[in-house]
Amino acid sequence: MTSDISSEFVQLKQEKIAVLYGGNSAEREVSLNSGQAIANGLEQAGFDVVLIDTKFVPLTDLVSKEIDRVFIALHGRGGEDGCLQGALEYMGIPYTGSNVLGSSLSMDKVRSKQIFKACDLPTAPFAVVGKNDFDDLSLKTLLTELGGRVMVKPANEGSSIGMAQARTVEQLRNALIEAFGFDDEVLLEAWIDGPEYTVAILGDKALPAIHMETPREFYDYEAKYQSTSTQYHCPCSLSDSDESELKKLSLKAFNATGAKGWGRVDVMRSSRGEWQILEVNTVPGMTETSLVPKAANVYGLNFSELVTQILLLSIKK
Rank of each mutant, 00 (worst) to 15 (best):
P235F: 11
P235L: 13
P235K: 09
C236V: 03
C236Y: 08
S237M: 13
S237F: 14
L238G: 11
L238H: 06
L238V: 00
L238E: 11
S239D: 03
D240M: 08
S241W: 00
D242A: 06
D242Q: 09
L246F: 05
K247L: 06
K248S: 14
L249D: 03
L249E: 05
L251R: 07
K252Q: 15
K252C: 13
A253D: 06
F254R: 09
F254D: 09
F254L: 14
A256M: 05
A256P: 03
G258A: 10
A259C: 10
G261E: 11
G261D: 07
G261R: 13
W262G: 08
G263E: 15
R264V: 09
R264W: 00
R264C: 11
V265E: 10
V265P: 11
M268F: 10
R269H: 04
R269D: 02
R269G: 01
S270I: 01
S270Q: 02
R272E: 15
R272M: 05
R272V: 01
R272Y: 05
R272F: 03
G273T: 00
E274P: 00
W275F: 15
W275Q: 03
Q276V: 00
E279A: 13
V280Y: 13
N281R: 06
P284I: 02
P284F: 04
P284W: 02
P284Y: 03
G285Q: 02
G285H: 01
M286W: 06
T287N: 08
E288M: 05
T289E: 09
S290R: 08
S290D: 06
L291F: 06
